[in-house]
């Protein structure tokens, strides 16, 4: 798969403060890419560089294989974290204005707005002023404005903040749908569960450095520690525990089950396979529960960030 956006050794400094230090990230076409990092890590600076709001001090950003050009603005849709609309302007009017700034003609903009307003069931808001709408309602309008010009790259900075679960779900499905239609999506968030749920690729930025990036599944595989969660039934628990402790690193585990089990986390030596462990256990006890511990994005995030603190 081609990379739609490639950032090569991008650095940016504000006075003495280093916002980005030699960051390289590649975003594959039609993927959902999660950009993670604690507050102040440099995510917003990176996004602003893609949007050509800020220029990098060094490094290049390639879009569609070519260095980023001012005209590419029309191919990018950006929903910033700090977002708002003109309070005293009517919804339809300002949506038209913002769409036209992105390069749509008036007729085009109007047609697409009508389509999206109908789709999200907000047609009756057209003549309302933003100050008459709730925050969630205004967010919906902003979403429409972001996607209206059919951008190839969509950048969402904390897209679900301010939405109730119902509307968050509607927006999530729209995002997935846009991806199906060919858009590439860059997510910036520190809500790990949405990354877990949606993203195939991710990058983690911390203190202006990129700490890791790649396919989410690859990263998880790299971070897994050959640890398994097991639930065992046996007549002689102390004896079994003793045996296990000699062969593996054993921890108490806690999970829900319907049987009164010995619940443990067992870490096997590198090179060992789940089958070996399973055979070993089956020979000694009844195995009710056997699952590999896969690190969550949250775990990876915390682990990486604290390691590099």
């Amino acid at each position: 798969m081609n990379d739609l956006l490639v950032a090569e050794n991008v650095s940016k400094q504000f006075g003495k403060f280093i916002a980005l230090n030699d960051v390289s990230i590649a975003i594959p076409e039609q993927s959902i890419f999660g950009l993670l990092g604690p507050n102040g890590a440099g995510k917003t600076t990176f996004i602003r560089i893609i949007n050509q709001i800020t220029m990098p001090d060094s490094g290049t950003v390639f879009f569609n294989g070519k260095p980023l050009h001012p005209n590419d603005i029309g191919l990018i849709g950006y929903l910033p974290e700090e977002r708002g609309l003109y309070k005293s302007m009517k919804v339809g009017e300002q949506a038209l204005y913002l769409a036209r700034l992105k390069g749509l003609s008036k007729a085009q903009a109007k047609e697409r707005l009508e389509y999206w307003f109908k789709r999200l069931n907000i047609t009756h808001w057209w003549d309302k002023k933003i100050q008459e709408l709730s925050k969630g309602m205004a967010q919906k309008v902003q979403f429409v404005i972001t996607v209206l010009h059919n951008p190839k790259l969509l950048i969402f900075d904390e897209p679900f903040s301010g939405f109730d679960p119902l509307n968050a779900d509607i927006i999530k499905n729209e995002i997935l749908n846009l991806r199906e239609e060919g858009a590439t999506i860059l997510f910036s968030t520190h809500r790990m569960e949405s990354v877990e749920e949606l993203c195939e690729y991710m990058a983690l930025i911390h203190l202006s450095e990129k700490l890791l990036d790649g396919k989410v599944s690859d990263i998880k595989r790299a971070y897994k520690s050959n640890t398994f969660e097991v639930g065992l039934t046996t007549h002689n628990e102390p004896e079994l525990l003793k045996q296990l402790e000699q062969n593996f690193i054993v921890e108490k585990a806690n999970f829900k089950s319907i049987t009164e089990d010995l619940k443990l986390r067992l870490q096997i030596a590198p090179g060992g396979t789940p089958n070996d462990l399973l055979q070993y256990l089956v020979a000694r006890a009844q195995v009710n529960h056997f699952v590999e511990v896969i690190p969550s994005v949250n775990d990876i995030f915390i682990k990486t960030v604290t390691q590099n603190a």
């Binding site: 949007n51 709001i53 950006y78 977002r83 708002g84 609309l85 003109y86 700034l101």
Partner: peptide, 18 residues
């Protein structure tokens, strides 16, 4: 100032030069 407090500014500057 209005555009700043409305937080619309970042949406606009992602389309046009400041």
């Amino acid at each position: 100032i209005e555009e700043k407090t409305n937080r619309i500014i970042e949406i606009i500057v992602s389309s046009v030069k400041p």
